[in-house]
Design a protein around this nucleic acid. Structure first.
Lengths: 205, 205
DNA sequence: ATGTATACGTACCGATCGGTAACATTGTCA
DNA sequence: TGACAATGTTACCGATCGGTACGTATACAT
């Protein structure tokens, strides 16, 4: 699933020099395992086994498991905004349609067996400590999501744009969680419809 | 925080005989630690230390750590519906006001430092395996929440009651998650207002 | 070919994980 | 006082945790 763009930026947070090839295999394996089963649930031994490398290779590319988790989330962040921007680009100049497209996509994604929700959200639940490297990345991602949704609510001409933006964020997070809680046929399938109702009720008359 | 009502039901799932006193101390300690820091993050040694008991006592009252986690969630479940029913009882015959009262309470609860969201939701994130004892309790709680919200949407006279009920659930889950993600001043403070907007837009005209 | 640097593997570390065996001590009620 | 159940004490188990010391292989330049 992970696409290896700017991998050196992801792996060590911008202060990179030359990323070894093993690092990508490790990050790919960690991405899949962390996302599907949780960060705390996965040990470094399982990661290196899946990646087909050895443990010292992991610790040459990443300072610690916690930092590897942060790197996983930086990769996740890249792909997240890619999907977001696709929905935006598909509906130029129409913020309501942009939101609807993004939410429709989320609603569809939740309707698969063993859907695991949002990696960012899950990581924040796993690590309540705000100083944990993984949580720092997660919180930044969510702050940015809030900022964008509020800006789009402004562009829609909402009566109370901050409230609408936040309402959309609540629906989105609710879809991530209920998607993994209820499985097929759960409440998350209605996220786009509910968002549209909320938008309709929030526009200036 | 845990009130020890029907503790024998909570501890071993109904098939109880006589609950020893150490079991309550253990469950209380586990409740606080599991909720605040996560189930996977807490070891049994920390629980017995906090409870002022020893490890064999834990394993005389609970078959395993996983079952202790399930007992914690059964206690959580009891208190959850207590709070829910309070909001219902405070507004008899007025489902819209009942929902608003429940959501207002959730919105307030999220606006404290180090808010940790819903123990049920968090447990489901920590344990993606549907057969895990803790997750079984969590999923049952959420199914019941969905059932009640949909029933209340019917009572409100919504055009599409299932969609409104699910929309309210999405907002609630979003509040639990964004409450712990954003801290004070986060999107969760607007959950009641957004719910009311959504209800307004969903009623038959 | 030989030096030099970089990447990789074998084997290991102490700590902690969930869980238990065996026995001593306590409290309670008859 | 006797008896029984509940709890405490101590020591331990194998497995796994995150992390590392140290030797080896490979690449490339000279």
């Amino acid at each position: 699933m992970p696409t290896d763009k700017n991998i050196e930026l992801i792996i060590n947070d911008g202060h990179a020099s030359a990323p070894p090839k093993a690092a990508k295999k490790i990050l790919d394996a960690a991405y899949d395992l962390f996302y599907r089963r949780g960060i705390r649930a996965i040990g470094v031994d399982e990661i290196v086994k899946r990646a087909g490398v050895t443990k010292p290779s992991l610790y040459r590319s990443f300072p610690s498991k916690d930092e590897l988790a942060a790197s996983y989330l930086r990769q996740y962040d890249l792909e997240y905004w890619e999907r977001f921007d696709e929905a935006i680009a598909a509906n130029p100049g129409d913020p309501r349609a942009q939101v609807k497209a993004f939410l429709t996509r989320i609603g569809k994604r939740t309707q698969v067996a063993d859907y695991r929700g949002c990696g960012m959200t899950n990581a924040a639940v796993e690590y309540p400590d705000h100083s944990h490297p993984a949580r720092v990345v997660s919180e930044a991602n969510k702050q940015e999501l809030r900022r964008r949704l509020r800006a789009m609510a402004v562009a829609m001409g909402a009566q109370d744009a901050d409230t609408l933006g936040d309402g959309l964020l609540l629906l989105i997070e609710g879809a991530y969680i209920s998607g993994q809680l209820f499985g097929l046929g759960g409440p998350a399938q209605s996220v786009a419809r509910n968002a549209d109702l909320l938008i309709e009720a929030s526009l200036k008359k």
